[in-house]
């Protein structure tokens, strides 16, 4: 508990008996430094009870949080990345992929799941930031495309959860064309009149923002996420001065008219249930008891 001892006296935590919790089971908020048990942190959807900081979570956590009884079927799990350009910078892309796969246990930076939210069927494609920064390569493009096809075939709403630095440079123009591919597929989904929900989480930038992430019938953002096309560093270098506070935040995008609403992760499931029930023109079957 060495790091925990350094926390100032008087810090409030919702835990009654800190001493009974073994080492390593504490989570300290990277922003306000408030400490809670990892169990509490997880129960609160990885949101800090002190300052509402939304910790980055992956597809598994989102699926378990959103789907009824945390029950879902993973789709298209056997699509693997290749190295079409035999790309090599300081390291070759093949070993980058192998390392990331080993570390994360995933094939690439996206998983697709289908199930129900408050009894309404939905297919969700969700990014994993811990796999090469959630960067968009061919696998991500193909999985989103197939999720959209699946939504069209089964007449169910499609949702994409974005958490990505943008394009995957090691797939160069292949990566760029995933923007075209996913947007074209969304045009077909729109023609069928099937709802598309885009959830923008921290961070959502680059080619992801300039394609499917901004094309939602409903653009929903988590609080205080970084959302933008150009990265803050590039803009700062271009204009030669510091960026205003809150620039490119979810709140900034709401103010400028590019997201419909900001939803706390702890309310996300019930908000989506309500939205899906309205879109289906059906009552909410089970009022949420959480």
């Amino acid at each position: 508990m060495s790091w925990f001892k350094r926390v100032k006296e008087g810090i409030t935590t919702s835990t009654e008996d800190k001493k009974s919790v073994p080492d390593g089971l504490w989570h300290k908020c990277p922003r306000c430094k408030k400490a809670v048990t990892t169990a509490e942190h997880e129960a609160n959807q990885f949101v800090c009870p002190g300052c509402n900081y939304h910790d980055k979570i992956g597809s598994k956590e989102y699926f378990e949080l959103l789907f009824d009884e945390s029950n879902y079927t993973e789709l298209f799990a056997n699509i693997y990345p290749t190295d079409p350009l035999e790309f090599k910078d300081t390291k070759d892309y093949k070993s980058r992929l192998a390392d990331s796969q080993k570390k994360s246990g995933m094939t690439d930076a996206m998983r697709v799941g289908t199930g129900t939210i408050q009894s309404f069927p939905i297919v969700i494609a969700c990014m994993d930031f811990n796999f090469i920064g959630g960067s968009m390569g061919s696998v991500m493009g193909e999985k989103i495309a197939r999720a959209i096809d699946y939504g069209r075939e089964n007449k169910m709403p499609v949702m994409v959860i974005s958490k990505s630095g943008g394009a995957r440079m090691m797939e160069a123009a292949f990566s760029l064309m995933q923007m075209a591919k996913t947007s074209a597929k969304l045009a077909l989904l729109a023609k069928d009149g099937i709802p598309y929900i885009s959830l923008l989480t921290d961070p959502t930038t680059g080619g992801v923002t300039a394609s499917f992430a901004m094309l939602g019938d409903f653009n929903i953002a988590e609080p205080e996420a970084l959302i933008g096309f150009a990265g803050p560093r590039v803009i700062r270098e271009t204009i030669g001065k510091d960026l205003p506070k809150g620039f490119q935040s979810s709140e900034f995008l709401l103010e400028h008219g590019f997201v419909d609403m900001i939803v706390n992760r702890t309310n996300l499931r019930s908000q989506l249930g309500q939205l899906l029930s309205l879109l289906a023109n059906k009552p909410l079957v089970k009022p949420e008891v959480e």
Binding site: T209, M214, A230, P244, F247, H256
Partner: peptide
């Protein structure tokens, strides 16, 4: 700044679709 305020990402995305 202005490009982001006016939705550079959204503008490009819309064109693709």
């Amino acid at each position: 700044l202005e490009a982001e305020e006016r939705g550079q990402g959204e503008a490009i995305a819309k064109n693709l679709l």
